[in-house]
């Protein structure tokens, strides 16, 4: 089992607005394999379909051409093996922080006492104890995203699918959250697919960075970034080389006559 990849995408092609006159070829010839426990980032110009790819893996967007396999099973819909974190948090605004974290556990029919235990434990780890009965509207952006991540972790998914999760946060909160995410990844060994347009963030967090072309999105290059990291502000030359290389490659996508 540990030999099979966590995620395998083969020959995936996707047209947005299928069946209508304004079809747009969004993804073409996507081949991707993600190891169990690996952290990869998808990077590319806006509109390159990186989020669409993430949502196809999540099972939210149905596809026709190609194959997407998660844990050995073809993706036909969302499942609790894949947890999702969105840029705009997507917490249920009418539920308190605790109720949000409990939601998935209730759907899994976890006994009430155990669910409460687990939810409270996660909130403590997310440093949200004391805010259990607050509504999302009463929290800062960083706290909301920590609550959203706690809600996702509560159902113990093998795979985390994250769509620019720190895109709506200010710079300081963002770097704190990056640290915490790395810590979660290291301690739980989850597989993470992370969409971002921040190249430094991608290089810092992930073991491999997948670079996509502008529409139609194809995989242009996969950059190995699995060297040890001490922080985004590191002096490690490998870090800066990788960032510079990926930047150049992304910028090339904006030049006329390309792709």
């Amino acid at each position: 089992m540990s030999g099979t990849p966590a995620i395998r995408v083969a020959g995936l092609r996707f047209e947005y607005g299928e069946g209508t006159r304004q079809r747009v070829l969004t993804l073409d010839g996507i081949e991707l394999s993600v190891r169990r426990g690996e952290f990869i980032s998808l990077v590319g110009p806006s509109g390159c379909g990186k989020s669409t790819l993430l949502y196809i893996i999540g099972g939210f967007v149905p596809y026709r051409v190609g194959e997407v396999v998660v844990n050995g099973a073809r993706v036909t819909g969302p499942g609790k093996d894949r947890g999702v974190v969105f840029q705009q948090f997507a917490l249920f605004p009418w539920k308190t922080v605790l109720q949000n974290v409990l939601y998935g556990l209730e759907k899994q029919r976890v006994p009430r006492a155990e669910a409460l235990d687990r939810a409270r434990g996660l909130l403590r780890t997310a440093r949200l104890d004391g805010f259990e009965n607050h509504y999302p509207s009463q929290l800062s952006g960083g706290m909301r995203q920590r609550a959203a991540i706690a809600r996702t972790l509560a159902v113990e998914p093998d795979i985390l699918l994250m769509d620019e999760p720190f895109g709506a946060l200010d710079a300081q909160t963002r770097s704190v959250m990056q640290e915490q995410l790395r810590e979660i990844w290291r301690s739980t060994g989850k597989t993470v697919v992370f969409v971002t347009h921040d190249v430094r963030e991608a290089v810092y967090l992930s073991e491999r960075v997948v670079l996509m072309t502008k529409r139609p999105g194809r995989i242009k290059e996969v950059v190995d970034t699995a060297f040890p990291k001490t922080g985004e502000m590191t002096a490690d030359p490998r870090f800066h080389e990788a960032v510079a290389h990926i930047w150049k490659s992304v910028r090339a996508e904006f030049e006329p006559g390309h792709g």
């Binding site: 099972g59 969302p78 947890g83 999702v84 969105f86 939601y103 998935g104 759907k107 998914p157």
Partner: peptide, 13 residues
Amino acid sequence: DRNLLWSAASLGA
């Protein structure tokens, strides 16, 4: 919000 529906679906709703 579509993302709320997707969140709930991925949490097992």
